[in-house]
Simulated assay, not measured.
Amino acid sequence: MRNGSVKEVLAKIKYDPRENEEDYYILIEHRGDYGSVKKIPMGLIELGHGYFFVGEAQIPYHRILKVVRKDGRVIWETRKDKRGVTR
C-alpha cells in the first residue's frame, strides 16, 4: 500500500503512461474544519515542489490522507494517528 512518499505516488499516477489519472482521487484534510475530508479527482491536480495545486488553491502535501483508485483500493495512506500526529 505505502510505497514511497505521497509526492512520488502522485507523480507516478500523473506521468507514467501506463496509468490513467482519471482512475484515481485523493482525500485531503480540509483546513479550518477539523475532521472534514474533501475528495479531489487526480485530473484536477497539478504537482509542485512542496505543494500541489487545484486551480488557484495551493495545498501542502501533508494534508493528503489517502490516494485511492475509483474501485476503492487505497494506494497510499498517511501514517497519522487519530490525533493528527504522524507516526
Results as ranks from 00 to 15, higher is better:
S5I: 11
N20M: 12
I13D: 00
H49C: 08
V74G: 01
Q58I: 06
A11G: 10
A11Q: 11
A11I: 13
G48A: 14
K66A: 02
P41M: 12
D33R: 15
Y15H: 15
K39Q: 06
I59R: 05
K14Y: 02
K38R: 15
R63I: 05
R69N: 01
E29N: 15
Y25D: 00
Y34D: 07
D16N: 15
E77A: 05
Y25H: 13
K70A: 05
M42W: 06
Y15W: 11
Q58R: 08
R79C: 02
D81C: 04
L27P: 02
G72H: 11
W76C: 10
K39W: 10
H49T: 09
L10S: 06
I59P: 05
V54S: 04
E19H: 14
P41H: 12
Y15S: 09
E29P: 10
E8W: 15
K14M: 09
Q58V: 10
P41S: 13
E56W: 14
F52Q: 02
R73D: 01
N3G: 12
V67A: 01
K7I: 14
E29K: 11
I59C: 03
V67H: 06
D33P: 13
R87G: 00
K39H: 10
I75W: 01
D16E: 09
I45Q: 08
P17G: 09
K14H: 13
Y15I: 10
L10K: 06
D23S: 11
I64M: 06
R18H: 07
V37T: 12
A11S: 15
R2P: 06
Y24D: 04
E46W: 08
A57S: 07
K66H: 01
V85R: 12
V68L: 03
L10A: 05
M1A: 08
Y15A: 01
I40Q: 03
L27M: 15
K12N: 08
V68N: 01
K82I: 09
I40M: 06
S5Q: 12
G72K: 12
Q58H: 00
P41D: 07
D33G: 14
E77Q: 09
I75K: 07
I59Q: 02
H30T: 14
Y61I: 03
Y61T: 04
V9Y: 01
G35S: 10
A57T: 14
K80Y: 07
I26N: 01
T78P: 03
G50F: 13
K12M: 04
T78R: 02
T86W: 06
W76G: 01
T78C: 08
K80D: 04
E22Q: 15
I40W: 02
W76H: 09
N20D: 12
K70E: 03
G55C: 04
N20Q: 13
F53L: 08
H62F: 13
E21D: 14
G43M: 03
Y51C: 09
D23F: 13
V67L: 05
I59D: 00
R18D: 02
I28Q: 03
